[in-house]
Design a protein around this nucleic acid. Structure first.
Lengths: 144, 144
DNA sequence: AATCGATGGTTGTATTTAGCAACTCGTGTG
DNA sequence: CACACGAGTTGCTAAATACAACCATCGATT
């Protein structure tokens, strides 16, 4: 088996192992915000608001799923809806002040965890690893 | 913000993005074997059999979850139980012939998908990416 | 202007995955 | 022997998700 295949095998195994744990471990770390809620809220934050449909498209989730997740986030007081005056159908979603704060906390603590995990990596390796992941995910975007 | 932090931020984002999708995309590709079942079956296969408790410990799953997953796999005829003659409490789990075949098929098709995604990567990059992932997951093992 | 198809969103229903708690049954140790 | 422990199962619950049916609004066409 060529070396190339061995590498691909490893990548497959490790990505799978990672995926299996990520959700559970995220839930353990941040009971207040599941991986999905976190992701949605983060997207709203850095897009400065967007529509539910956009979230669904971007994350390949059913619109009903997004609708319920957003409803939950709204109930928690983390997002608010602003009806678009130009089109009464659309609700532009924004994180509330409270939502932005919680998001910032979770982000900080996730960042902390990542920093610990990556503490002994040198800068060049971090840089390359980051690049590879971006490249990998971008490829998946195109194929999925 | 030092470059190091930017890399870590990217790694965090990309790993999260990946995790979010992996399950759904695995389910779409292989409706016959969820990501968890696949993982459990694969573990049985390469350990040449093990106990339910070992699976639970290894994958940080509740023993009830493993029990039900195994029951499902057994119902499908993919695993069989062999009671340990030295300790009647333990059941050593093994993939059946059929289970091993299905596993091989799914593995092959997953490998195919990975090959497509990584088709335009050069050997050095694949190698480094694989190493980084192993290193990252090993670190997570220690901390989790 | 009335209508109709497309778009944004919600709700009903079902499935899957998971955890926790309570249980059974066998094992081994005081 | 009694009792604690370990392996596994089962009852119950909750969360996340998909699919389908639905409602409201918009925009284009007649």
């Amino acid at each position: 088996m060529p070396h190339r295949d061995t590498s691909i095998e490893t990548i497959q195994q490790e990505m799978t192992a990672f995926a299996r744990r990520a959700r559970a471990s995220a839930a353990r770390m941040h009971p207040e915000l599941s991986l999905v809620s976190y992701t949605l809220l983060a997207h709203l934050d850095d897009q400065h608001g967007c529509r539910a449909t956009d979230l669904a498209a971007h994350y390949l989730l059913d619109k009903s799923t997004v609708s319920r997740q957003i409803a939950a986030l709204e109930k928690l007081g983390f997002v608010e809806r602003r009806v678009d005056p130009d089109d009464q159908r659309v609700q532009v979603l924004h994180p509330t002040k409270k939502g932005a704060e919680v998001l910032a906390n979770v982000t900080a603590s996730r960042r902390q965890a990542f920093h610990e995990r990556l503490a002994d990596w040198d800068g060049g390796d971090l840089d390359r690893f980051a690049m590879y992941l971006q490249r990998y995910n971008a490829a998946q975007d195109r194929l999925d």
